[in-house]
Design a protein around this nucleic acid. Structure first.
Lengths: 342, 342
DNA sequence: TTTCAACACTCAAACGTTTGCGCAAAATAG
DNA sequence: CTATTTTGCGCAAACGTTTGAGTGTTGAAA
């Protein structure tokens, strides 16, 4: 076992000072050609690589960005990570991923941990519990310390920082309009409780587009799910109780449960009932029938978030603060769970 | 904006030396009760948190472990990450996730990056390209530097380190035996090319169990897929050309393509043809029919890997080297893509 | 011959910690 | 009242870098 080579060892070996080695490796003109060559050859031969920790300490920046997400076993989040990774790496940044498991405490813990020197900034989607508690002190804390923060997907207005979101309302409107266009009259909505912002917004889109089409809203046709674990049963119940000719679900799981329930009721998708989901995951693509869905373009969101963060990180401190909100457009992907346009 | 508090600032503020502050915060008996209380109160009030980077540099360990995986948009890997995270966090370790995107170069780059001070050890699954190239110098490199390495899932014998694998052969045997037990006679195999070790091993399980049952192997019933992109077409072709009454696929994507192809051929799953997959992902659970599958228990694998790594990290250097291979058992999860036992 | 710039390099401080050692003052023992 | 121990704290080195300032040679201009 041969431990890592340091400047000090090179210096001792070649009988020069540490600073000479450092400068030689950075091609400083202060060092004589011969010495420089000798040092570089030695370093190359023994595969010298500077110690990142020491560099971070010296430069007071780590060149790594921290991502904290509620859960990783979730297609959308993984695509976002991919997107962040891609642009971060291009710009010489590293990525650390931490999970909050939707727990407020773990979110706080992870942020504190990463804030203590591990990262230069954060890209986050908030834990469900945090949204419920409405306790955002840990966010303002890191912002006050001068660490940039970019929020994505689950976002709230109270926190002043850069944000990347999708046009949930518009996306929902597109979806519901599409259902109307393909002949649906009674459209059920399967959403989440309102403190999950995306659920709220998509619900709003649903309501707005009905209003725009001068249709009445039937509250019986709106299901708001609190607990993921009981979602399957609730959806089944909802489908059995109500006569609908289309369902708009705010995520793919709900959409699939809806399809199952519809089929078990003896109806066909899309002939009798059309179904549209949100989030373009594996499930949507592979399911039979494959799901017509509002695609969130997670990778693009991740990329945008990374760009915003790195911009902030590399901006001079004197340039005034200003926070941007980037909206990544959704698009409707037509597959086989809906009737096609005439 | 208020930058992070340091020992130095506390010391200046309270008019004591830095070392006194450090000791007071660690409850050293060398510091007088009064001073200690004062310092602790001050630190608490202003929410002092030691800088991790400085600590890492001083202690020459980072308390973080690096995970490098081929891709994150993949259910199995995310479950592994979850598992690692869980036990790592319990033991006070952090987790960094990096992606190789199945590229050899990026794998090497990421390892070098993380090896230069960012992590104390690695948990990895190898990139496909690395397996093809059979170039493992970057692994031996970090091992030589004294960094522990745990390989999981995609593993090869040439690298001497701890490993966590599943009993691919046994898992495959279980699956095929189950198909035989439910009355299948002609069982097709949809596998990957042999340099992907899991493909090879699962293929071996298939062959072994046929032999054990004194059945002949028909090479026409074995499909080895090289390119994921063309897998759908290849599988369709394979199903159309061959008469089978069961299919064993080495992952869930292949299984689902097989089901689609079978249905498009006018046959029913599982009445006419049974299908078993490998990996218990979202897709397997939600697909209709839901997939009977060999579950890999990714979370358990991640947990075991983390335990092995942390064990190594916290062992005294004098204790001799010895490498373990932990085998995580697979289990067959019976769902609706196979006939049930009589 | 003196002056001084250019060259090639070294010293030392800094980033934020921890910790062995030293040192003065206070407390105890003789 | 001196001698020794204890108490309470500070100094400085170390982890691996970078970098401004300093230093001792050259060689050329004045």
């Amino acid at each position: 076992m041969r431990p890592k080579l340091t400047l000090k060892q090179i210096a001792r070996e070649l009988d020069v000072s540490i600073s000479t080695v450092s400068r030689a490796l950075r091609d400083s003109s202060e060092i004589g050609e011969e010495t420089r060559k000798k040092i570089k050859a030695f370093a190359k031969f023994y595969n010298y690589k500077p110690n990142n920790i020491a560099l971070s300490l010296k430069n007071r920046k780590t060149k790594t960005i921290g991502i904290i997400i509620p859960e990783i076993v979730h297609y959308f989040f993984t695509t976002v990570i991919s997107g962040v990774e891609k642009v971060a790496n291009e710009k010489g940044y590293n990525v650390i991923v931490c999970l909050s498991n939707n727990s407020f405490d773990k979110e706080v813990l992870n942020m504190e941990l990463l804030a203590n020197g591990s990262t230069d900034g954060f890209i986050m989607s908030m834990a469900k519990e945090t949204l419920q508690k409405e306790d955002y002190h840990h966010f303002t804390e890191v912002i006050n310390q001068g660490m940039p923060l970019v929020l994505f997907d689950r976002v709230i207005d109270e926190i002043h920082c850069d944000k990347v979101i999708i046009d949930d309302v518009i996306g929902a409107k597109k979806a519901v309009q599409y259902l109307l266009d393909t002949g649906a009259q009674k459209i059920g909505l399967v959403s989440t409780v309102d403190y999950v912002s995306v659920g709220k917004l998509r619900t709003r889109g649903y309501l707005e587009i009905l209003r725009e089409n001068n249709l009445e809203v039937d509250q019986n046709l709106i299901l708001k799910i609190e607990d993921m674990d009981s979602s399957e049963a609730e959806i089944k119940d909802f489908i059995n109780k109500n006569e609908v000719d289309a369902v708009f679900a705010v995520n793919e799981h709900f959409a699939i449960h809806a399809i199952k329930a519809i089929q078990e009721k003896g109806l066909k998708v899309p002939e009798d009932v059309s179904v549209i989901g949100f989030t373009n995951g594996e499930l949507s693509k592979r399911f039979i029938p494959s799901l017509t869905t509002v695609s969130q373009h997670g990778e693009r969101m991740g990329g945008e978030a990374a760009k915003l963060l790195i911009d902030k990180l590399e901006r001079k401190p004197d340039e005034g603060e200003s926070y941007k909100t980037v909206i990544v457009e959704t698009s409707l992907i037509e597959r086989n769970s809906t009737k096609s346009l005439i």
